[in-house]
Write a protein that binds this DNA or RNA. Structure first.
Lengths: 193, 193
DNA sequence: CGACAAACCTAACGACTTTAGGTTCAGGCC
DNA sequence: GGCCTGAACCTAAAGTCGTTAGGTTTGTCG
């Protein structure tokens, strides 16, 4: 077996692929080493420890997700942008379930301050701008949006919606309609009666 | 050391307490056995294996959550019931973070068909009835509700909202307002323009 | 050519899950 | 009381993981 000639990036990408293929819980250093044709201990040359590997996957996914969102919402605004934004999330969660699960875990401090995180936050704000919310309400709208999209996709990913009729697809459309409605008529002051 | 005289229920409850106290990831059979003053292998008399233990905690939490929701929404309807329903979720997630995390994992087949799951589903439907949605829309509303509440609490639990100003409390109120608005004006047919 | 750093290895430890088989204890029955 | 039976608990052992320590190979650059 020739040298694998790994780098930190290659290890993290392979870890993400493994998580997608065998499930996030199967993301073990030993399994990863096997797949890379290398001894487990050798991975420590590229990654500090297991938690750093998970953080790496988290950050990788963050960047990839931002990379998928950007072209999707480009040139659109309002409802169309919202649908594209959420759709990019859903596509990503389906195509990369392991990476998606990694995203659901608490982010490391370094990840929070990473460029990838900033980019995703920027894209979210860019999308929300179309709704012309008051500046002070942007945070709340962002949180509601994140909660709804992530919540829906997490429930869908772990089978909470079963495979019952009607399809989750219809519920997804309803959820996006609801978000659009809420964002368009966001309370501007005090509590509307 | 006298006999512990454990039962399956006692083991599962202790596991839930351990998860709340030390974090869900620290929920190991060995740690549980230590806490119970028993050898690890002895736990296998009460629990099939680790995954069954997690399933047990999941189901326990499901029942407890339903038990907290029922009195909260009793006698209320509409917006008030919604706030009580969601509030019970939030209280539970904060008081029992380990149990809450267990709830976020895929449910075992047996859990899906359990009475606890049915009870929680029933309470959710009971709460939603106050909004008098068309029968065929109930599923979609349930899913949106679950997505938003679970999504918000998961993000809050893993620190995604940071400890930044403004407080998540305000965002929580906004989210509930949004849900109430959406449920009150749920599209009854076709897509409203 | 020779040094140096990065990539990789073997060996070992401790923690964990799980199985197999043996021991203790309490309650019911003759 | 003596005994049987099942539940509760134990020891022992195998196998997987994560992690550290220290040694070996390999490519590159002066």
């Amino acid at each position: 077996m020739p040298r694998a000639n790994l780098t930190a990036e290659a290890v993290i990408t392979a870890a993400a692929d493994l998580a997608d293929h065998d499930g996030f819980d199967a993301l073990a250093l030993s399994a990863l080493a096997r797949r890379l044709g290398v001894q487990t201990a050798s991975l420590y040359s590229h990654v500090r420890d297991r938690s750093a590997l998970l953080a790496g996957v988290h950050r990788l996914a963050l960047g990839e997700l931002a990379g998928a969102i950007a072209p999707a919402i480009g040139g659109r605004s309002g409802r169309e942008a919202l649908i594209a934004f959420a759709g990019a999330h859903r596509d990503y969660a389906r195509r990369f379930p392991g990476r998606w699960t990694a995203l659901q875990r608490p982010a490391a401090e370094s990840t929070v301050r990473s460029g990838e995180a900033a980019r995703l936050a920027g894209l979210t704000l860019a999308m929300l701008r179309g709704y012309r919310l008051p500046e002070t309400e942007l945070v709340h709208a962002t949180r509601l949006l994140a909660a709804t999209v992530n919540g829906f996709l997490s429930l869908e990913a772990n089978g909470s919606f079963g495979h019952r009729e009607p399809t989750a697809d219809v519920s997804w459309l309803r959820a996006l309609d609801a978000l659009d409605t809420v964002l368009r008529s966001w309370p501007t002051e005090g509590k509307p009666r």
